[in-house]
Design a protein around this nucleic acid. Structure first.
Lengths: 398, 398
DNA sequence: GCATTTTGTAACCGGGCCGAATAAAATCAG
DNA sequence: CTGATTTTATTCGGCCCGGTTACAAAATGC
């Protein structure tokens, strides 16, 4: 019924493998992809011609085993790049990511005006991204944006931090119009992207289903990445899990939502610090707690306990293989692991499945996830982003 | 990385289309599938040769528009069947389903002994299924089983109702060994299957993400079918959502779980009926409530209110497009819609997304979902079930 | 009867992958 | 040093699947 999704062909799959696992030999790629040797050989030739990879000399003779040595396939140093963006409150943060997953250049940012219309914000974002991609040098494959709010199929609804509240913004489509042909546009929920990155490259490596909880200064987000080769997971409003049905009223309409007790604001409140909205305050409290100051530490533990109640409930309901805690407050998992895990230990579900609560390993999960999303699009049609000028025929000598 | 999943080819896709939408002309299939006319023509020829479909004469001349009339493709009356099974407490229920989604013959059942080892139960299930498939006549394409517990990739863990609690049971693999070659085995969570069926054929038709809540006599299950062409959704332990953190202790280790307040046992308690474990008792109470008896009606409303709290919380967290309430207690949604929806109306998330709470339309969602799962496997390789070598035994007359 | 419209069919093409045979480049054994 | 062995890469033919094109078939409308 709904199957217009192009599967990556051998060329794309090889490129993806290189992107995820780094340099490989042809032989390793053959076994990893389960393809015939000849197919990998052709794909390598194509990718070389497209200047996406370079074939480096094999390891010097004597180091490998018997047999014919296999040269190493590495992403081309001037290979394709994508721009990953994370649109937060007031600013968007952008980075250029190279094939292989390395950041290129410095973190860039862009002010985001909540009063501006969505089109203008997106146009500015596309322009800044184009500038960064040009500076980075390589061919530009795509732009992927992570944001909060409700995001589905690249359409953003009720993103309070952007001021896009009145009607749905078809952000992906609008961005695509601003980009040169061949450059893909993708828009997804920030937590889904974080989940993607943590499963591929971080704390959730190799796991099946992953539940990501993102504790921020204002609010708690989340995403569930179900088992299987899912493209983008299902974003959760984890902060609006009801923890105390008779608790304080939440703007969301319910009572006693988790994020009333366990986000950055709650930590400041518990620590007796006046919340000016400055993100540094939360980090300061966490820093003091880490240094052992009793007040902040006790505050962190109280917040962690609340968070643990919510996490345990979510684990009980969603039954993920791994829970990854990330966001500005992820240090809680180190400072107050006991409090955080106390409820989880009671849960039969968690015990049966041996659900682990882990700390996010990536410092920029959203940007990394966005980059992977953009590359995924690229892998489905690698020749799109590079001019149609190049001949595809390996044997155009004849 | 993980892509050994074969995509259905044109033959399979056409068969799937026929299965889901009923008889079609070649022309309609061509546009629906977006394939070339010749491909559909070839596929039809193949399917005719495989005796999976028959080509019926076109509508009598004069009824259609201009142009050459197009004959109708219909699933063969002696076409392939699958056996769908739902393993519940004490008994397994089985039905034969024909290509096209119709039940064949009567509901069959099989006692399930909790004390028996898993192998014996599965062997009996496979044997009974083989018997039913033989009676039904057509070639047997597959057996799909829905069950509770924790099911992942066909492996069942901690299925209390089956007594499979000590260690994981690779049910799919064990079943596959009992089945003749060419007959597929699939095992999935009952709620995932119900969600699949309701989205394809029931209350969730056309929706993106679907949250299914199954209210049973003992416990509340659920499943989340994320947006996109997902095979099988993510099963939820919806009954173990914490509704009241200071509530009664639940065997799951938490306090105040939803199912302590809102399953069949809770309804009987509220109605002042002694719970003997008989499923008919719950239906009796619901029937009396439907007839307007004040006591049972008030009990139903109190339970529905609790259920509504849980449903609203889940909606707030999971933000699905549609919520489908099914299971033996789904009548609550009719008897006490107001109470059930009162909390949902408060939820900002539900209001923004206009989340609908609907009643499951299918009387046997689990069996239908299981059948679809088995057919999905069949569609990926339709010739497998029919002699891969030559003709099948059905045609061994020649 | 003839043009028009729609559908089915046959022949050919090309991409993508597989498999077998062959060639290349190392190690190992004498 | 030479030849056997091992591992890898490449070449070539072939299959499968789907697209394209041209043509035939079967209705309507003049």
């Amino acid at each position: 019924m709904d199957r217009p999704v192009r599967r990556p062909t051998a060329v794309g799959r090889l490129l993806e493998l290189l992107h995820l696992r780094g340099p490989l030999t042809r032989a390793e790629a053959t076994t990893s992809l389960g393809l015939a040797r000849s197919v990998v050989g052709d794909a390598v030739a194509d990718l070389e011609e497209l200047r996406l990879i370079v074939v480096r000399q094999a390891a010097p003779t004597g180091t490998a085993g018997r047999g014919r040595p296999s040269p190493l396939l590495v992403p081309a140093p001037d290979g394709p790049v994508v721009v990953a963006a994370h649109v937060g409150v007031g600013t968007a943060r952008l980075r250029v990511v190279r094939l292989g997953g390395e950041f290129v250049g410095e973190l860039a940012s862009l002010p985001v005006d909540r009063a501006a219309p969505a089109e203008r914000t997106l146009t500015a974002l596309a322009a800044r991204a184009a500038e960064l991609a040009r500076e980075a040098g390589g061919p530009w494959a795509g732009l992927a944006v992570g944001t909060g709010g409700m995001v589905r199929h690249g359409v953003v609804r009720s993103a309070l931090h952007l001021g896009w509240t009145t009607e749905p913004v078809p952000a992906e489509e609008l961005l695509a119009r601003q980009l040169p042909p061949g450059v893909s546009a993708s828009v997804a929920h920030e937590c889904s992207l974080a989940a993607l990155a943590e499963r591929r490259r971080g704390a959730g490596r190799g796991a099946g289903s992953v539940l990501v909880l993102t504790c921020e200064h204002t609010g708690i987000g989340g995403a569930l990445l179900p088992d299987g080769p899912t493209a983008v997971g299902h974003a959760l409003e984890a902060g609006h899990l009801v923890v105390d049905d008779r608790g304080p009223q939440c703007p969301c309409g319910q009572r006693g939502c988790l994020e009333l007790f366990a986000d950055g604001r709650a930590l400041l409140r518990e620590a007796g610090v006046t919340d000016t909205g400055d993100a540094a305050l939360v980090q300061a409290v966490l820093g003091r707690a880490a240094r052992g100051e009793p007040g902040p530490l006790a505050a962190a533990r109280r917040v962690a306990e609340r968070l643990g109640i919510g996490a345990a409930s979510l684990v009980n309901v969603l039954d993920p293989d791994v829970v990854v805690l990330t966001g500005p407050l992820k240090a809680l998992a180190v400072l107050a692991r006991e409090q955080l895990e106390s409820r989880l230990a009671d849960s039969l579900v968690a015990r049966v499945n041996d659900t682990r609560l882990t700390v996010g390993e990536l410092s920029e999960p959203v940007l990394l996830g966005a980059a992977d999303l953009a590359f995924d699009v690229f892998f489905r049609a690698p020749s799109n982003a590079l001019g149609d000028t190049t001949r595809r025929t390996r044997t155009d000598a004849d």
